[in-house]
Structures are given as structure tokens and as C-alpha cells.
Amino acid sequence: MNEFAFYVAAAIAVLSTALVITRRNAVQALLYLALSLIAVAVVFYGYGAPFIAALEVIVYAGSIVVLFIFVVMMLNLGRRAAQAEARLLPPRIWIGPAVLAAVLLFEIVYLLARGPRLPVAAAAIPPRAVALALYGPYLLGVELASLLLLSALIGAYHLGWRRQPFPEVRDAPPESPAGLDSGRDSVRAGSRRSAGAA
């Protein structure tokens, strides 16, 4: 890959990550996060790691961020949450992190300017080589990671498990006309209209 493509992808990744932090609307922030992950995948591809690039898109951009968006949609935060976020993050709160980040930026620019250039184009690593490395010298790491994921899975299952499941709504007789619409619906789309009604 030529250097130009690398710098474009890297710039998009940095810019979209900055936008992830500054967006007040959660769904918009998550969309920039997905964009940033795709840009990172392009960078990986350029460095000769097509397998990692593909997994980056499949696992992170394609599944995990979608899951985040799903949860945000389920909570349906809307405009009020954006206002709360705005109150939470007044401009002066940015000063500290901005100064520290600027120091880091200066440092990295300095190092880039005087240090030897790293090669952008490396030899492409085929998926087979990745597999042989993972299940050869790094087998222990893979097993530990899978143990961690398994315990997380069991934990999540335990948290979600109920001894007595809720009776299905469609079988239960309505207790009262008011009970039909009693806060059961966690989904409030078209929030402006329903906010007026509630």
C-alpha cells in the first residue's frame, strides 16, 4: 500500500475517534466509532495483515458496535439525554485532557520528525501464518483469553437468568385498562409525541 493511503486512513481513524468523544448523541458517536474501526482495518490491511483487518470489521465494526447501537436504541435516550450530556461536559472540562493530549502529540511529532522512518509496506501475512502463530507459540494466551470469555459468558447468563420467567403478556388477562400501558414498554419511539401524552 502506498503511504498516501495509509495517512488518509490514519487521519480518518484519528478524526472519527475524536468525534466519538465529542458527539452528544450516542448513536452518532457509535457510528463514528464504527467508522474509526473500519479505518483501523484499512491501516491493518495496508500493513500486510489482511486477516486481522477482516476480523476487525467482522467482530468490532460489524458485531460489537451494532450491539452497542442496539442497546442505545432500546434505551431510546433521545434529546433529553443529549441535553444532560451537554450539561455534564462543559467546555472547561476539556482543558486538562486537551493540554495533556497536546503534549503527547508534540512528543510523537518530534519523534517522527527526527527518528528513522518505519516501513509502511510490510510483507503480507497470510491467514495460515496467523493461525500457526496463535496455535503454536501463543497457545497459552489463546486459551487464557477463551477462559476469560467463557467466564464472562457464564456471568452474563447468570445475571440474565430468572428462576421464574415473567408470564407472557399475551396470555395474561388485562388487570385494568390503565394497566395495559403501564411502563412495560421500554421502547418509546417518536418520543416527542409520547412525551406530551405521558
Binding site: 477482516a54 470489521v57 467482522i58 451494532v66 491467514p127
Partner: peptide, 13 residues
């Protein structure tokens, strides 16, 4: 050489 993964990535996007 990762065409199948590319297909899966695009379908997940």
C-alpha cells in the same frame, strides 16, 4: 486471499 472473510465483513456491515 481473504475473500470469504471479506464477504462476511460486508454482510455484517
Amino acid at each position: 486471499n481473504i475473500a470469504l472473510l471479506f464477504f462476511l465483513a460486508m454482510s455484517s456491515l
